[in-house]
Every structure is written in structure tokens, then in C-alpha cells.
Write a protein that binds this DNA or RNA. Structure first.
Lengths: 203, 203
DNA sequence: ATATTTGCTAACCATATGGTTAAACTAAAT
DNA sequence: ATTTAGTTTAACCATATGGTTAGCAAATAT
């Protein structure tokens, strides 16, 4: 059996690169380490992806493309704000528990190269907050929610859901718990966070 | 005038290293860049700090020592939970606005080297959550607060206060605002966040 | 059957990088 | 004036690192 059109090697490289880049970041990652991880010759990395930068961008785009739809769920879905918050919180925490490095990786690399976010903004499917803002304003007007700016609520939802994963080493240290207890704590947050938010905003 | 005992150069190096490390991280920082930033010969870095690793640790410890007391304020202060939350939120956001790279730097580097957090834990003054937990339990018992676990509340407070700084490029993109509007948004959070939390937990 | 393309490897290259060294300079102590 | 101790510099070193090249073998096209 020969190679498929979209060479299997290319895919193996991307997977290996994902693991290494997400652990070490762009600056900490080494092309040799990626090659070792993929069990191939280092030259193959350049054969398929030309440069470290381009390989990195391939990994980053893939990662971002995985995350974006999760956010669009809360921004563009048609259910009520309360429903959306409950669904999002539960789904998002499940999702990130399966990809724990994702948010840290994305946030770290966007901080390293903020101009990078512009590239992402151009792509279709980039999360947009406008519809969400209108919905919040409407539910406030209808007396369902207490007054709050859509932007602030959105940031709060993001913060409460994402932060524990980004700051896990810090939290484990402060709260003085091991990995197992942390996992449980995060699991509890699936409902905890939604309750916390809704308690706060419901009129 | 000769040099003081604690050589001025040593201090200049530390300041330069702080700027470079906080911008580029351990992996992205270059000793030559730090030397240039300090306007000195690269060998001086090693003369005063032996190695990149030790210079980095000096910077990191300084940074952490700056942040820790801020957290202890909410954990060990004697005022009521509501007061603490209002004070902390306002103070912390003011503080970080002056040192915007601090939390990102610390979180990024702890993720890079989680075993590093153990070193910090040993130091006295390392934030401890026990007293806070007891206080929460007590105020719940007294009917002042709705039931919530101290750990979860603590994480929520951290998340709401710290996350916007850590994820600022992402937030600016999603909410579609420039630096100025972001600054205003963060300023508003000084009271916004406290209200949000207290709304949620007050019985 | 022959030529061409594709996937792949080992060896190599130029440069960057953290770190070292020996000598020079400075200022205070003798 | 000379010694001594601390400070600074230029030059250097070994290694790591991203990237390139020439060639080979299998597959594909002619």
C-alpha cells in the first residue's frame, strides 16, 4: 500500500507538532523534538511545512478552529440567555477537559504575538458579540435580567469558564489540592459556574 | 562617586531582565537582548547572576513577591466577605493596571514549569485559603451568604479579576474594541465585578 | 522498459546562543 | 607609589538550532 494523497506523514507531523507546541510554546519548541515525536527525519518537517513558523501557524489555526465554534455556541444560538449559559458552561468544561492545553496555548501565543489575532479575525466563523449584546439588552428590557452590559457579562462567562484551566498550577497551589481533587473541582463547576452567573444576573 | 555596596549595575540588570522576560518569557528571552536593554556587556549578566536560569528566577521571585500580598489581602483580612470582595476587586484591578504583564508572566511560566510552583509554596507569605474557607462557611451559617464552597468562590474571584488581563488580546478581538475602550472596560470592572459576585452570593 | 515524480534520509551549513576567560580598568587601602 | 579587590570589556568557545542539499528508492506516468 502506498501513501494516500494527503500523505499520512503530513498528518503525523501535524499531530506531533501539536503536542510539542502546546506543551512548549513556539519559543520553547524544537524542530528536532517534533521530528522525534513523529518518528521521522527532521528534514521532513521542512519538506511538508517549509519552516517552523508555518508549521506553528498550521497548529495554531487548527487549535483556534476547534475553539471558535464553542464560543459561537453562546454568541449565536437562539435559546434564552439562561439556557445558553447553562449549556455553554457544561459543554465548554467538558470540551476543555478533553483538550486542557488549548486555551493556555492560544492565550499564550496571542500574548506573544498580538498582531496574530488580526489574522484570525479575518477568517469567517470568528466569534462576534453583537447578537449576544442585543439579546442581553432585550432580556433586560423584558425584566428577565438585571441591568448589565453585554460585554461585561461575556467577559465574566469567559473568565469563569476558561480561567481555571489557564491558571491550573496556580489554583492547585493556592487551594492546596492534587490533580485528582482539581479534576473533581472542575467537574463541579459544570453546574456551579452556571448557577453562580445566573444567580447574579436574574432579575 | 564609586558604586554602592549593592552595585547599581546589579539593579539595572534586574530591571532590564524584568522587562525582557516579562515580554518574551524565559524561552523567548535572549541574554544579549537583556544586556542591550541594560546597556552593558553580556558577560556582566553572568558576573552578577551566573546563568540565565538564575537571572530568570530572580525576576520571577520578585514578580511573585509583588503579587502574593495582593491575594493575602482577600484571604487573611478580617473584614466581612462583602467588604473584602469590594476592596480586593478595586485594589487588584488598580494594581494590575500598573503591572499589566505580571499575571500573564506568572501564569505562563508556571505552566511551562509546574514544578516551579513548589519552590514558591515553601516561601512564607504564600497565599493560603484556609482562613477564607472558614469565613465563608461561617457567613453561610449566619445566613449572610448563599451556600457556596470557599474554593469555588475563591476561584471565581480570581477568574473575574485576573482573566481579562491574561486574555486581553482575545477579549479585544471578540468584543471588537481598541486599547482605549479596553482600558475603560477594565476600569468599569472595579465595581462591576464586585457587584456581580455579591449579587450572586448574598443571601 | 524508461523517464519522472514523490517521499524520504544522512550529512551538512550558517548562525544564534549561553557561557567563559584573560586582560584591562577603577578606586580604595597600605 | 604600590598593592589589592572589585568591576568591566572584547574576544572566544562549544553547542544547539533552523534550515538546506544531494542522493536514493519506490511509485507513477510515458
Amino acid at each position: 500500500m502506498s501513501k494516500t494523497k494527503d500523505s499520512k506523514t503530513e498528518h503525523i507531523i501535524l499531530e506531533a507538532a501539536k503536542r510539542v507546541f502546546q506543551n512548549k510554546g513556539m519559543d520553547g519548541a524544537r524542530m528536532q523534538e517534533i521530528a522525534d515525536e513523529a518518528n521521522i527525519n527532521k528534514a521532513m518537517l521542512h519538506y511538508y511545512y517549509r519552516s517552523k513558523q508555518l508549521l506553528f501557524e498550521a497548529v495554531f489555526s487548527t487549535a483556534f478552529a476547534l475553539l471558535a465554534p464553542q464560543l459561537n455556541a453562546i454568541l449565536n444560538d437562539d435559546s434564552s440567555v439562561e439556557e445558553k449559559i447553562r449549556n455553554f458552561t457544561s459543554n465548554y468544561i467538558s470540551f476543555i477537559s478533553k483538550h486542557p492545553y488549548l486555551p493556555t496555548f492560544i492565550i499564550q501565543e496571542l500574548n506573544r504575538n498580538p498582531n496574530f489575532v488580526l489574522k484570525m479575525k479575518e477568517k469567517k466563523g470568528f466569534p462576534n458579540i453583537e447578537k449576544f449584546k442585543k439579546q442581553i439588552a432585550l432580556e433586560i428590557q423584558n425584566g428577565i435580567l438585571k441591568p448589565i452590559k453585554g460585554e461585561q457579562l461575556f467577559i465574566n462567562i469567559m473568565a469563569l469558564n476558561i480561567f481555571p484551566f489557564v491558571a491550573s498550577p496556580l489554583i492547585k497551589a493556592f487551594v492546596n489540592i492534587d490533580d485528582k481533587a482539581f479534576k473533581q473541582l472542575v467537574e463541579d463547576r459544570k453546574t456551579e459556574v452556571a448557577d453562580f452567573i445566573i444567580n447574579s444576573i436574574k432579575a
